[in-house]
Amino acid sequence: MTDKPPTKIRVRGLRKAFGAKRVLEGLDLDVGAGESLVVIGGSGTGKSVLIKCILGLLKADGGSIQVDGEEVIGIDTDQREEINRKFGMLFQGSALFDSLPVWENVAFGLLAGKGLHRKLAREKAIEKLAQVGLDSDVATLSPSELSGGMQKRVALARAIATEPDIILFDEPTTGLDPIMADVINNLIIKITRDMGATALTITHDMASARKIAHRIAMLYEGKIIWVGPVSEITRSGDERVDQFIHGRAEGPIRMAVRA
């Protein structure tokens, strides 16, 4: 019998609304230490809201989020800064700082957060860039000089530069061609495995989800409606999951389309 890994992130009854629109309605989710969990769901179902609530970028209306057993809803700014040191985050649009060269983007957490000397931080940044398959020549370029795929890799290098325990990926393959998307998927698998990090990814790219996940959870109407190992998703027994993973317009999930 194998021991179940300790829970790294525990979400219970999470609620979040924007005005009258209720996005998350009592969401429950567990992410085990060292596991890669992918949350799938249609556009506008609240996947990004879930990640932003975990990071404290959005204030949850209710419920509980625990990171390593510590409640993070309602904590003050200093505690939040401390908790966020455990996280690395890859944003959907990369969110690189345009005013800084690539290496300073990668080393930002080391310079501002950990106060590392600039020379050492630069060496570390180049090392991380190499880990995501980028040459040291890229280090002095501005983010605007890079292609979308390269920006994504730089953002990935920034997310892992401080060697966080937990890495969050927000639509890591959106906007990339299939080959570059697979390169990013491989990097995510390699990096999280090498670092032993816990990964929480949100995506609607099923190819990516199948490749990088240990478990998949599906978010629909503000709740997790199914969660299980990636190998079992085709046998979920839930019509909504089947419709989503096969990308069918017909089924119980109705998209809000207005003429």
């Binding site: 990071l55 966020n84 690395g88 944003f91 690189l96 700082f97 930002f108």
Partner: peptide
């Protein structure tokens, strides 16, 4: 403003920088 709409401000927060 551009940093706000391109999530760069959120990125700063996730890097433990206010």
């Amino acid at each position: 403003g551009t940093m706000r709409v391109t999530e760069q401000l959120d990125a700063l927060t996730t890097l433990s920088t206010n």
